[in-house]
């Protein structure tokens, strides 16, 4: 049984923001991450504010300029199955289809997938770790086989979201509302590295709510893919993953983004890979160099150096696939 909390399901964003402003209030969207966190007492909630009564947040719409607007309460299943997303933003549809299990995809939301808490077993367990306001990271000298190889500083989690890497790679924007009004943030900078602030995962301020995700209209010649490697074929987080969004002109890559998953405390943009592939024809030699560059600056922990050949091999395979269209 979860600890007691009060519950409110407002019908407007304004009301929700007001309720979220009270002490220890927590937002409920799909509830698939909130409820286990409350049950395990990762954090407390005096008040649960469900935004499920706000129906405006539940839609996928093409806007006049050809971009796509995804409401934050759209379920992961809806993202995975939407024909327009599958056609134009393949990497996002593929990533959504790889999230957790069917039941969780039916319930979990795209907004929640971006805002979920870390899955580090020390963070989720009874350890007062650095991220929870404690003094040390238990993973650093402990069981760190599933932790990061990039961007670790103080805390060594990997960001668990499958949909965040493709959203960052597509240069999506995230609309947010809060007590101070509306603002828009690039998906690529929505998550916060531990070197900047170890106690927060996203740029969200108290009582702010993610309302929509905006995807720019893709140009001709854009190819994208998402690859997720996990320890078993179903229902698991990524050991390694990559979202590729590359603009092709013939066999040459003219621009694009490469964002790694399971690599760092935030979706990790691999500038190293981008530098090798952009401006080059994607031939075997370029692909090998790009895959090697991906892991060149990696800093593995004691038990996760297997991730280096894993990322390298995975990058090589995925770049070969995207080359062949």
């Amino acid at each position: 049984m979860m600890p007691n909390f009060s519950y409110i399901r407002p019908e407007s964003l304004q009301e929700a923001i007001t309720h979220l402003g009270s002490a220890d209030a927590r937002l409920h969207a799909g509830g698939t991450d909130l409820l286990p966190c409350l049950r395990d007492q990762v954090f407390d909630a005096k008040k649960v504010v469900s935004i499920n009564g706000i129906n405006d947040l539940r839609s996928i719409q093409e806007t006049e300029d050809g971009s796509l607007r995804i409401g934050a309460l759209t379920t992961i299943t809806e993202v995975a199955e939407n024909p327009l997303i599958r056609e134009r933003y393949a990497a996002l549809a593929q990533a959504a289809a790889e999230v957790a299990s069917p039941q969780l995809r039916h319930q979990g939301t795209i907004g929640g997938n971006l805002c979920q808490k870390p899955r580090c077993w020390y963070y989720r367990g009874e350890f007062h770790c650095l991220r929870k306001g404690g003094k040390i990271c238990y993973a650093k000298g402990g069981e760190n086989q599933f932790h990061c190889i990039f961007g670790g500083k103080g805390c060594y989690i990997v960001h668990p979201s499958d949909t965040a890497p493709p959203l960052a790679a597509f240069a999506a924007k995230i609309n947010i509302v809060g007590p101070k009004g509306k603002r828009t943030v690039e998906a690529a900078v929505f998550h916060v590295e531990p070197s900047k602030d170890v106690t927060r995962e996203t740029v969200l301020e108290p009582a702010e709510i993610v309302t929509e995700i905006l995807l720019p209209r893709p140009l001709q010649g854009l190819r994208s893919s998402y690859r997720k490697v996990r320890a078993r074929q179903a229902w698991d987080f990524a050991l390694a993953g990559v979202a590729l969004v590359l603009q092709f002109q013939g066999n040459k890559v003219t621009k694009g983004r490469v964002v790694l998953c399971g690599a760092a405390p935030v979706p990790w943009r691999s500038y190293e890979v981008e530098k090798v592939v952009i401006g080059s024809a994607l031939d075997d030699a370029t692909i090998s160099r790009a895959a090697a560059a991906a892991v060149k600056n990696a800093k593995p922990l004691e038990k996760n150096d297997y991730k280096i050949p894993l990322f390298q091999g995975m990058l090589e395979e995925e770049l070969q696939k995207i080359k062949n269209g």
């Binding site: 519950y7 399901r9 409920h28 698939t32 499920n52 069917p102 039941q103 969780l104 039916h106």
Partner: peptide, 13 residues
């Protein structure tokens, strides 16, 4: 008609 986990669904929801 959609399969979901009863443990992760609040009855009020």
């Amino acid at each position: 008609d959609i399969p979901r986990y009863g443990c992760l669904t609040l009855a009020v929801e």
